[in-house]
Amino acid sequence: MMDLPVSVIAGYLGAGKTTLVNHLLRHNEGQRLAVLVNEFGELPIDADLIESADDGLISIAGGCVCCAFGSDLIGALTDIRNMSPRPDHVLIEASGVALPASIAASVRLIDGLRSDAVLVLADAEQIRRNARNTYLADTIERQLSQADMLLLTKADLVSKQQLDEVRDWLKGNHPGKRILPVVSGQIPISAALGALPFPARQPSAADTAHSRFESIVLRPDGIVDADALGVALANDPGVDRAKGFVAGDEGMVLLHVVGNRHNTEAASGDHEVGVICIGLKDQLDPARIRGLPDAVRAGRAAE
Protein backbone atom coordinates (compact mmCIF):
# COMPACT_ATOMS: atom_id res chain seq x y z
CA MET A 1 0.00 0.00 0.00
CA MET A 2 1.25 3.47 -0.86
CA ASP A 3 1.84 5.91 1.94
CA LEU A 4 -1.17 8.03 2.81
CA PRO A 5 -0.56 11.70 1.94
CA VAL A 6 -1.10 14.30 4.67
CA SER A 7 -1.32 18.02 4.00
CA VAL A 8 -1.23 20.78 6.58
CA ILE A 9 -3.44 23.82 6.09
CA ALA A 10 -2.12 26.73 8.11
CA GLY A 11 -2.45 30.49 8.33
CA TYR A 12 -3.63 33.11 10.78
CA LEU A 13 -7.24 33.56 11.88
CA GLY A 14 -9.49 34.73 9.12
CA ALA A 15 -7.21 33.52 6.34
CA GLY A 16 -9.94 31.20 5.09
CA LYS A 17 -8.77 27.78 6.30
CA THR A 18 -12.26 26.60 7.19
CA THR A 19 -13.73 27.93 3.95
CA LEU A 20 -11.07 26.10 2.00
CA VAL A 21 -11.62 22.83 3.85
CA ASN A 22 -15.35 23.01 3.23
CA HIS A 23 -14.82 23.80 -0.41
CA LEU A 24 -12.50 20.81 -0.82
CA LEU A 25 -15.02 18.56 0.93
CA ARG A 26 -17.83 19.83 -1.26
CA HIS A 27 -15.85 19.45 -4.43
CA ASN A 28 -13.76 16.43 -3.57
CA GLU A 29 -13.71 15.05 -7.14
CA GLY A 30 -14.00 11.53 -5.83
CA GLN A 31 -11.26 11.82 -3.23
CA ARG A 32 -12.09 10.64 0.26
CA LEU A 33 -10.71 13.23 2.65
CA ALA A 34 -10.04 12.89 6.36
CA VAL A 35 -9.99 16.29 8.04
CA LEU A 36 -8.27 16.73 11.40
CA VAL A 37 -9.01 19.86 13.34
CA ASN A 38 -7.34 20.95 16.53
CA GLU A 39 -10.56 21.20 18.45
CA PHE A 40 -14.22 20.67 17.78
CA GLY A 41 -14.97 23.91 19.57
CA GLU A 42 -15.01 25.76 16.32
CA LEU A 43 -16.69 23.13 14.22
CA PRO A 44 -15.22 23.60 10.81
CA ILE A 45 -17.65 21.59 8.73
CA ASP A 46 -20.74 23.07 7.05
CA ALA A 47 -23.82 21.50 8.59
CA ASP A 48 -25.27 20.32 5.27
CA LEU A 49 -22.15 18.21 4.60
CA ILE A 50 -22.43 16.28 7.84
CA GLU A 51 -24.07 12.88 7.54
CA SER A 52 -23.63 11.78 11.13
CA ALA A 53 -21.59 12.53 14.19
CA ASP A 54 -20.57 9.84 16.59
CA ASP A 55 -18.07 9.64 19.40
CA GLY A 56 -15.64 12.20 18.13
CA LEU A 57 -15.90 11.25 14.46
CA ILE A 58 -17.99 13.20 11.99
CA SER A 59 -19.03 11.42 8.81
CA ILE A 60 -19.24 13.65 5.79
CA ALA A 61 -20.81 13.22 2.38
CA GLY A 62 -18.65 11.43 -0.15
CA GLY A 63 -16.96 9.07 2.31
CA CYS A 64 -15.06 11.85 4.05
CA VAL A 65 -14.58 12.16 7.82
CA CYS A 66 -13.54 14.80 10.33
CA CYS A 67 -12.19 14.46 13.84
CA ALA A 68 -10.46 16.61 16.47
CA PHE A 69 -6.95 15.77 17.61
CA GLY A 70 -6.63 17.95 20.71
CA SER A 71 -3.35 17.16 22.43
CA ASP A 72 -2.74 13.87 20.59
CA LEU A 73 -2.09 14.55 16.93
CA ILE A 74 -0.04 11.41 16.45
CA GLY A 75 -2.72 9.23 18.02
CA ALA A 76 -5.39 10.76 15.80
CA LEU A 77 -3.25 10.34 12.68
CA THR A 78 -2.55 6.72 13.58
CA ASP A 79 -6.28 6.08 13.92
CA ILE A 80 -6.90 7.62 10.51
CA ARG A 81 -4.14 5.53 8.96
CA ASN A 82 -5.78 2.40 10.34
CA MET A 83 -9.24 3.26 9.04
CA SER A 84 -10.90 1.00 6.55
CA PRO A 85 -11.52 2.06 3.88
CA ARG A 86 -8.52 4.29 4.06
CA PRO A 87 -8.98 7.91 3.01
CA ASP A 88 -7.15 9.21 -0.04
CA HIS A 89 -5.75 12.30 1.63
CA VAL A 90 -5.56 13.68 5.16
CA LEU A 91 -5.93 17.41 5.82
CA ILE A 92 -4.79 18.89 9.11
CA GLU A 93 -6.32 22.27 9.80
CA ALA A 94 -3.81 23.98 12.07
CA SER A 95 -4.72 26.59 14.66
CA GLY A 96 -4.16 30.22 13.71
CA VAL A 97 -0.84 30.56 15.52
CA ALA A 98 0.50 27.04 14.90
CA LEU A 99 3.74 26.55 13.03
CA PRO A 100 3.00 24.06 10.23
CA ALA A 101 6.54 22.68 9.95
CA SER A 102 6.34 21.15 13.41
CA ILE A 103 3.03 19.52 12.51
CA ALA A 104 4.58 18.12 9.33
CA ALA A 105 7.52 16.82 11.40
CA SER A 106 5.08 14.86 13.56
CA VAL A 107 3.41 13.42 10.45
CA ARG A 108 6.76 12.08 9.30
CA LEU A 109 7.11 10.05 12.50
CA ILE A 110 4.30 7.72 11.54
CA ASP A 111 4.84 4.73 9.31
CA GLY A 112 2.45 4.63 6.41
CA LEU A 113 1.95 8.39 6.26
CA ARG A 114 3.67 10.84 3.97
CA SER A 115 3.89 14.55 4.69
CA ASP A 116 2.59 15.78 1.36
CA ALA A 117 2.39 19.55 1.54
CA VAL A 118 2.21 22.56 3.79
CA LEU A 119 -0.37 24.97 2.41
CA VAL A 120 -0.28 28.34 4.09
CA LEU A 121 -3.18 30.68 3.52
CA ALA A 122 -2.65 34.41 3.38
CA ASP A 123 -5.61 36.76 3.43
CA ALA A 124 -5.08 39.28 0.62
CA GLU A 125 -6.79 41.96 2.66
CA GLN A 126 -5.13 41.31 6.03
CA ILE A 127 -1.80 39.60 5.55
CA ARG A 128 0.37 42.70 5.31
CA ARG A 129 -1.30 44.29 8.30
CA ASN A 130 -0.91 41.11 10.36
CA ALA A 131 2.72 40.87 9.29
CA ARG A 132 3.31 44.35 10.71
CA ASN A 133 1.57 43.59 14.01
CA THR A 134 4.10 43.59 16.86
CA TYR A 135 2.74 40.42 18.37
CA LEU A 136 2.17 38.49 15.15
CA ALA A 137 4.99 39.49 12.81
CA ASP A 138 7.38 36.65 13.56
CA THR A 139 4.63 34.04 13.74
CA ILE A 140 3.21 35.07 10.35
CA GLU A 141 6.70 35.15 8.88
CA ARG A 142 7.49 31.67 10.18
CA GLN A 143 4.20 30.35 8.82
CA LEU A 144 4.78 31.82 5.36
CA SER A 145 8.36 30.60 5.19
CA GLN A 146 7.29 27.05 6.02
CA ALA A 147 4.83 26.84 3.11
CA ASP A 148 5.23 24.61 0.08
CA MET A 149 2.51 26.68 -1.54
CA LEU A 150 0.99 29.98 -0.52
CA LEU A 151 -2.70 30.35 -1.16
CA LEU A 152 -3.63 34.01 -1.48
CA THR A 153 -7.21 34.00 -0.30
CA LYS A 154 -10.01 36.54 -0.63
CA ALA A 155 -8.38 37.64 -3.86
CA ASP A 156 -11.82 38.75 -5.05
CA LEU A 157 -12.19 41.16 -2.13
CA VAL A 158 -9.32 43.42 -3.13
CA SER A 159 -8.69 45.47 -6.24
CA LYS A 160 -6.47 44.19 -9.02
CA GLN A 161 -3.82 46.68 -7.96
CA GLN A 162 -3.98 45.63 -4.33
CA LEU A 163 -3.76 41.99 -5.37
CA ASP A 164 -0.68 42.70 -7.44
CA GLU A 165 0.88 44.60 -4.57
CA VAL A 166 0.32 41.87 -2.03
CA ARG A 167 1.57 39.26 -4.47
CA ASP A 168 4.70 41.28 -5.11
CA TRP A 169 5.17 41.70 -1.39
CA LEU A 170 4.90 37.94 -0.86
CA LYS A 171 7.22 37.24 -3.78
CA GLY A 172 9.72 39.73 -2.44
CA ASN A 173 9.77 38.18 1.01
CA HIS A 174 9.54 34.59 -0.16
CA PRO A 175 11.21 34.42 -3.54
CA GLY A 176 10.41 31.37 -5.60
CA LYS A 177 7.39 30.25 -3.57
CA ARG A 178 4.30 29.32 -5.57
CA ILE A 179 1.46 31.70 -4.91
CA LEU A 180 -2.03 30.62 -5.93
CA PRO A 181 -4.81 33.18 -5.77
CA VAL A 182 -8.03 31.79 -4.31
CA VAL A 183 -11.24 33.50 -5.35
CA SER A 184 -14.36 33.09 -3.19
CA GLY A 185 -12.64 30.32 -1.29
CA GLN A 186 -12.51 28.19 -4.42
CA ILE A 187 -9.59 26.17 -5.70
CA PRO A 188 -9.79 22.76 -7.34
CA ILE A 189 -8.78 19.90 -5.12
CA SER A 190 -6.36 18.75 -7.79
CA ALA A 191 -4.47 22.06 -7.48
CA ALA A 192 -4.53 22.14 -3.69
CA LEU A 193 -3.89 18.49 -2.95
CA GLY A 194 -3.03 16.87 -6.26
CA ALA A 195 -5.13 14.56 -8.39
CA LEU A 196 -5.87 10.95 -7.64
CA PRO A 197 -3.26 8.78 -9.28
CA PHE A 198 -4.33 6.45 -12.08
CA PRO A 199 -6.21 4.26 -11.95
CA ALA A 200 -8.65 5.61 -9.46
CA ARG A 201 -12.29 6.18 -8.88
CA GLN A 202 -13.88 8.34 -11.50
CA PRO A 203 -13.67 11.97 -10.54
CA SER A 204 -16.95 13.79 -10.25
CA ALA A 205 -17.81 16.39 -12.85
CA ALA A 206 -15.24 19.15 -12.90
CA ASP A 207 -16.29 22.38 -11.31
CA THR A 208 -16.69 25.23 -13.70
CA ALA A 209 -15.71 27.71 -11.01
CA HIS A 210 -12.27 26.24 -11.32
CA SER A 211 -11.75 27.28 -14.87
CA ARG A 212 -8.83 29.44 -13.79
CA PHE A 213 -6.88 26.23 -13.47
CA GLU A 214 -5.88 23.79 -16.13
CA SER A 215 -4.46 20.33 -16.05
CA ILE A 216 -2.62 18.23 -18.56
CA VAL A 217 -1.55 14.61 -18.40
CA LEU A 218 2.08 13.91 -19.10
CA ARG A 219 2.73 10.38 -20.38
CA PRO A 220 6.46 9.86 -20.78
CA ASP A 221 7.33 7.00 -23.16
CA GLY A 222 9.56 4.31 -21.73
CA ILE A 223 11.76 4.53 -18.71
CA VAL A 224 12.40 7.92 -17.14
CA ASP A 225 14.39 9.08 -14.10
CA ALA A 226 11.48 9.93 -11.80
CA ASP A 227 13.56 12.13 -9.51
CA ALA A 228 14.98 14.14 -12.37
CA LEU A 229 11.52 14.56 -13.83
CA GLY A 230 10.29 15.60 -10.39
CA VAL A 231 12.98 18.27 -10.18
CA ALA A 232 12.09 19.52 -13.65
CA LEU A 233 8.38 19.72 -12.84
CA ALA A 234 9.04 21.38 -9.49
CA ASN A 235 11.23 23.95 -11.23
CA ASP A 236 8.64 24.67 -13.90
CA PRO A 237 6.99 27.90 -12.80
CA GLY A 238 3.65 26.93 -14.34
CA VAL A 239 3.21 23.64 -12.47
CA ASP A 240 1.79 23.93 -8.96
CA ARG A 241 0.87 20.34 -8.35
CA ALA A 242 1.70 17.14 -10.22
CA LYS A 243 1.00 13.58 -9.34
CA GLY A 244 1.10 10.22 -11.08
CA PHE A 245 3.03 7.15 -12.10
CA VAL A 246 6.07 6.83 -14.34
CA ALA A 247 8.16 3.81 -15.29
CA GLY A 248 11.52 3.97 -13.51
CA ASP A 249 14.63 1.81 -13.78
CA GLU A 250 13.34 -0.54 -11.12
CA GLY A 251 9.62 -0.52 -11.76
CA MET A 252 6.75 1.88 -11.36
CA VAL A 253 7.30 5.01 -9.33
CA LEU A 254 4.70 7.35 -7.85
CA LEU A 255 5.79 10.96 -8.31
CA HIS A 256 4.40 13.93 -6.38
CA VAL A 257 5.17 17.57 -6.92
CA VAL A 258 3.98 20.37 -4.71
CA GLY A 259 5.26 23.86 -5.35
CA ASN A 260 9.04 23.65 -5.53
CA ARG A 261 9.30 20.29 -3.89
CA HIS A 262 8.96 16.78 -5.24
CA ASN A 263 8.88 13.32 -3.78
CA THR A 264 9.00 9.81 -5.23
CA GLU A 265 8.06 6.45 -3.86
CA ALA A 266 8.28 2.95 -5.35
CA ALA A 267 4.85 1.71 -6.39
CA SER A 268 3.79 -1.88 -6.18
CA GLY A 269 1.47 -3.43 -8.73
CA ASP A 270 0.46 -2.35 -12.18
CA HIS A 271 -0.29 1.26 -12.90
CA GLU A 272 -1.05 3.27 -15.95
CA VAL A 273 1.71 5.73 -16.76
CA GLY A 274 0.59 9.32 -16.45
CA VAL A 275 1.34 12.39 -14.39
CA ILE A 276 -1.44 14.92 -13.94
CA CYS A 277 0.07 18.40 -13.90
CA ILE A 278 -1.99 21.31 -12.65
CA GLY A 279 -1.41 25.01 -12.75
CA LEU A 280 -3.01 28.34 -13.47
CA LYS A 281 -4.39 28.52 -17.00
CA ASP A 282 -2.32 31.50 -18.03
CA GLN A 283 0.87 29.99 -16.66
CA LEU A 284 0.69 26.30 -17.49
CA ASP A 285 2.52 25.74 -20.77
CA PRO A 286 1.52 22.31 -22.15
CA ALA A 287 4.18 22.27 -24.86
CA ARG A 288 6.95 23.07 -22.42
CA ILE A 289 5.77 20.42 -19.97
CA ARG A 290 5.43 17.75 -22.64
CA GLY A 291 9.03 18.43 -23.54
CA LEU A 292 10.29 17.85 -20.00
CA PRO A 293 10.80 14.04 -20.18
CA ASP A 294 12.99 14.40 -23.25
CA ALA A 295 14.85 17.31 -21.71
CA VAL A 296 15.44 15.20 -18.62
CA ARG A 297 16.75 12.32 -20.68
CA ALA A 298 19.01 14.66 -22.62
CA GLY A 299 20.32 16.14 -19.41
CA ARG A 300 21.00 12.72 -18.05
CA ALA A 301 22.78 11.66 -21.19
CA ALA A 302 24.91 14.77 -21.02
CA GLU A 303 26.16 13.93 -17.49
Binding site: D72, L73, S102, S106, L109
Partner: peptide, 26 residues
Amino acid sequence: QNHPGIPVGDDGLPTGELKSPEVMMP
Protein backbone atom coordinates in the same frame (compact mmCIF):
# COMPACT_ATOMS: atom_id res chain seq x y z
CA GLN B 1 14.28 10.01 12.52
CA ASN B 2 14.33 13.64 11.60
CA HIS B 3 12.30 15.43 14.22
CA PRO B 4 13.60 18.25 16.41
CA GLY B 5 12.01 16.60 19.47
CA ILE B 6 13.72 13.24 18.96
CA PRO B 7 17.50 13.28 19.48
CA VAL B 8 19.35 10.47 17.74
CA GLY B 9 22.38 8.62 19.15
CA ASP B 10 25.62 7.47 17.51
CA ASP B 11 23.89 4.25 16.48
CA GLY B 12 21.42 6.23 14.38
CA LEU B 13 18.52 5.32 16.68
CA PRO B 14 16.61 7.64 19.03
CA THR B 15 18.27 8.07 22.44
CA GLY B 16 14.95 7.68 24.21
CA GLU B 17 14.57 11.36 25.04
CA LEU B 18 11.29 12.73 23.68
CA LYS B 19 10.85 16.48 23.77
CA SER B 20 7.58 18.33 23.22
CA PRO B 21 4.06 17.05 23.84
CA GLU B 22 3.39 15.76 20.34
CA VAL B 23 6.27 13.26 20.41
CA MET B 24 5.75 12.38 24.08
CA MET B 25 2.18 11.21 23.54
CA PRO B 26 2.79 8.14 21.34
